[in-house]
Amino acid sequence: MSIVAYFKEEGTAATSVELISEVEQRLYREMRFLDDEEYRKWTDMMTADVHYFMPGIETRYRKDKTDQMNDLSRMAYYNDNLEELGKRIDRLETGTAWSEDPATRYCHIISNIEVETTANPDEVLVYSNFLVYRNRLERDEDTLIGNRKDLWRREDGVLKLARRRILLKQNVLISKNMNVYF
């Protein structure tokens, strides 16, 4: 299987308060769109070549060198381009997505935001942590927690999400499905 050196870029801590604040506001806005199920507005914040990646992480011993975070050929919850993300969202708009009707209640909380500049003046690396809570019907309840590493690219003056890697801190997904975005 092909192992791609996927997301190993490193940057330099950003010093511009203005830039950091701009990034933070973009991250919060994204999560508000997800809380409100405004999925098209959410994907409008992405570049056309976005890659949205959430690998499945097996429990392995420390000495094990299997690259579970960067090998794109392994099983993943999400390994999507914009079209594939779009198809998942299409489902929600059919009117027959039964497991979302009645609606699920979502709350996305983002913290630990860190911004790094890169060699490319239009691109920044962004680290963050998430806590996504969802609750539906009577007492269905999930709390999903993890880290993200993003690449945001400025296009026509606006920062857009170009790449995101999501690491969920669960081995067995303690939920019946993953009808949720991060």
Binding site: M1, G56, D71, M75, V172, I174, S175
Partner: peptide, 8 residues
């Protein structure tokens, strides 16, 4: 394919 996805 490499990996296993488990859910409850």
């Amino acid at each position: 394919v490499g990996g296993t996805i488990k859910s409850v």
